[in-house]
């Protein structure tokens, strides 16, 4: 079981996808706080406390979609890595894009994982279960 003091952030524009993550968390009894941002700009605002109350503590894990309006996942990731306060956050890409270029760009920005959203709900549940196991094995600073 993942340490409950660790906050997780989900950056995702699709409401059903948000619901899916939330349902998966519920199903696997992941009780950590889940902050939801609908695009990169909103996520950055929340992390920096610009126009939004700053998230305290800062989430240690971010689940990030790539295709989003206004600021997409890769742009957000580049900003995050350039920010001295935020650059150490562990990022997991959760996307439908199987595009090679996206994958290469993401790993060049040091993502912890690149997970394709499966169409099958069951498979998605499995993905979240594995992620949970991974997180619970990992020691975060």
């Amino acid at each position: 079981m993942i340490n409950e003091t660790i906050d997780i952030m989900l950056v995702e524009d699709d409401e059903v996808d948000i619901m899916q993550v939330q349902r998966a968390f519920g199903k696997h009894h992941i009780t950590n706080t889940l902050h939801v941002a609908r695009n990169g700009i909103e996520a950055l605002a929340m992390l920096r406390g610009e126009g939004h109350p700053k998230l305290i503590p800062l989430p240690k894990i971010i689940l990030l979609d790539i295709n989003m309006p206004m600021m997409n996942g890769l742009e957000f990731l580049a900003q995050l890595r350039a920010d001295p306060e935020l650059h150490a956050i562990s990022i997991f890409i959760l996307t439908t894009s199987s595009n090679d270029q996206d994958r290469i760009a993401a790993f060049e920005l040091n993502v912890a994982g690149y997970i394709l959203k499966p169409i099958d709900t069951t498979k998605f549940m499995d993905s979240i279960r594995v992620l949970n196991m991974f997180w619970s094995l990992t020691e975060y600073p």
């Binding site: 699709d14 059903v16 996808d17 619901m19 439908t96 169409i119 709900t121």
Partner: peptide, 9 residues
């Protein structure tokens, strides 16, 4: 594909 996945879910 997003809407498709939403339909399934």
């Amino acid at each position: 594909k997003s809407p498709l996945r939403a339909i399934t879910s």
